[in-house]
Computed example of a mutant assay.
Amino acid sequence: MAPRGETRERVLRTAAELFQRQGYHGTGLNQVLARSGAPKGSLYFHFPEGKEQLASESVALSGRTVSEALAEVVLAAPDGRAGLAAIGDHFARNLLESDFGKGCPVATVALETAAGSETIRAACDTAYGQWLDGLRVALLGWGVPGERAEPLAALVLSALQGALMLARVQRDVSVIHQVTRQLAGLL
Rank of each mutant, 00 (worst) to 15 (best):
P3Q: 06
F45H: 15
A71P: 12
M165S: 12
H90S: 01
L166S: 05
T119Q: 15
Q31Y: 12
V156M: 06
S56Y: 13
A127Y: 07
L75V: 14
D172I: 00
Y44S: 07
M1R: 02
R171N: 09
A38K: 06
I120G: 01
A86R: 05
D79K: 07
S67E: 10
Q22L: 12
L33Q: 03
L187C: 00
T180S: 04
A163L: 00
G80C: 13
A167L: 02
A122D: 06
Q130L: 07
A123F: 13
Q182N: 08
G116E: 08
T108C: 13
T27N: 11
L111K: 11
T65N: 11
S174C: 02
V59Y: 15
P105N: 12
E17Q: 14
P151H: 03
Q161I: 14
G41A: 10
A122C: 05
A107P: 09
Y44R: 03
E49Q: 14
E112D: 00
F45N: 13
G146N: 10
F19N: 13
L140C: 01
E68D: 14
V59T: 07
R168K: 11
A127C: 07
E52N: 14
K40W: 15
V59G: 09
S62F: 10
G103C: 01
M1V: 12
A76Y: 03
A153T: 05
G116R: 12
F100I: 00
A163F: 00
A149M: 04
D133T: 04
R21T: 08
A167W: 04
V11W: 11
A60I: 02
L95S: 01
V74N: 09
V156S: 05
T119S: 14
M1Q: 07
S174V: 02
S62Q: 07
P151T: 09
E68L: 08
R93V: 14
A69R: 03
S117C: 08
R93L: 15
A115I: 02
K51A: 10
V11L: 15
G101R: 07
G101P: 06
A159F: 04
S36M: 01
E9I: 06
T27M: 11
H177M: 11
R35H: 09
